[in-house]
Nucleic acid binder design. Structure first.
Length: 226
DNA sequence: GCCAACGTTGGC
DNA sequence: GCCAACGTTGGC
C-alpha cells in the first residue's frame, strides 16, 4: 500500500488515467476519526497514546517484491531504500486516512521499523528514521501515477508523505510469524505485544508502536530465531 | 491463487 | 444515515 518511491515531482510513467470519485464524505470521516483517536483514554496501545507522547515509534509497510499496479511496479524494499542517495526516500502513495494521519503525526528523528509486506517472508527487516515531516505527496497530482487522486486539489492536498532515512538492518529478520506467536501469548499474559497494531489493525500500512512494543521487538534481535 | 478482513462508495 | 456491493490489503 504505501508505495514509497524516490522520484522527483513531475516524473511519471506510462499508464491509464484514474477514474473520478466522490470525496467529501470519506474525507470528513477520516478527519473525524483522527481526532477521536487521540482523545480516547487508557494506557494500552500506541493507538490510544499516539499524539500525546513526546516521541512515537512507527512501523511502515512496503512491498519488497515486484508487483504491477496500473502498469507501474510498486516494489520498494529496504535494499531499495539503502540504494537511494543519502539512503533517503519519500514515503509516497499512502491513500488511507488513518495511515495518513499517522504520517502527519511523525516528528523529525523518530524511528520506524521497515516492514516487508505482501511477500514470501513478511516481517521487520530494518530501522529507519524520519528526516522530513509531513508535506504534500506529489504523486496524488500525477495522472499517470498508480496513486493519482483526481479528487485532490493542488491548493488543498489530501495526501501527505514524509522522508525517511535508512538507519540499519535488524541484527536478524523478525518475521511476522514470530511476532504473531508473541502477540498470541502476550494476549494471555498481558505482555508487551498484546495490542500490537500489526494484528489489531492488520491492514494499516503506517502504524504507531508504544515504547514497550518497540523495545520488546528490539530485544528479540538478541535471541535465537524462534 | 484464495480468501478474510475491512475500508470506501453510492443508492435509497 | 444505513448498509449492500465492491475494491484493496496482505497473509497463507
Amino acid at each position: 500500500m504505501p508505495r514509497p518511491r524516490k522520484r522527483p515531482p513531475g516524473a511519471a510513467g506510462p499508464e491509464k488515467k484514474g477514474q473520478s470519485e466522490k470525496r467529501t464524505k470519506s474525507e470528513n470521516l477520516g478527519e473525524a476519526s483522527a481526532k477521536v483517536e487521540n482523545s480516547s483514554l487508557q494506557k494500552t496501545s500506541a493507538f490510544k497514546k499516539c499524539g500525546r507522547n513526546l516521541t512515537n515509534y512507527w512501523l511502515m509497510k512496503s512491498e519488497p517484491e515486484s508487483r504491477l499496479e496500473k502498469g507501474v511496479d510498486v516494489k520498494f524494499s529496504i535494499e531499495d531504500l539503502k540504494a537511494q542517495p543519502k539512503q533517503t526516500a519519500c514515503w509516497d502513495g499512502v491513500r488511507n486516512y488513518q495511515a495518513r494521519n499517522f504520517l502527519r503525526a511523525m516528528k523529525l528523528e523518530e524511528e520506524a521499523f521497515f516492514y516487508h509486506s505482501n511477500c514470501k517472508e513478511p516481517g521487520i527487516v530494518g530501522l529507519m528514521k524520519i528526516v522530513k515531516e509531513a508535506y504534500p505527496d506529489h504523486t496524488q497530482f500525477e495522472k499517470n501515477n498508480p496513486h493519482y487522486d483526481p479528487s485532490s486539489q493542488e491548493d488543498n492536498p489530501k495526501w501527505s508523505m514524509v522522508d525517511v532515512q535508512f538507519v540499519r538492518m535488524m541484527k536478524r529478520f523478525i518475521s511476522l510469524a514470530e511476532l504473531k506467536t508473541y502477540h498470541q501469548s502476550h494476549k494471555a499474559t498481558g505482555g508487551p505485544l498484546k495490542d500490537m497494531a500489526l494484528f489489531t489493525h492488520q491492514r494499516l500500512s503506517i502504524q504507531p508502536l508504544t515504547q514497550e512494543e518497540f523495545d520488546f521487538i528490539l530485544s528479540l534481535e538478541e535471541n535465537e530465531p524462534s
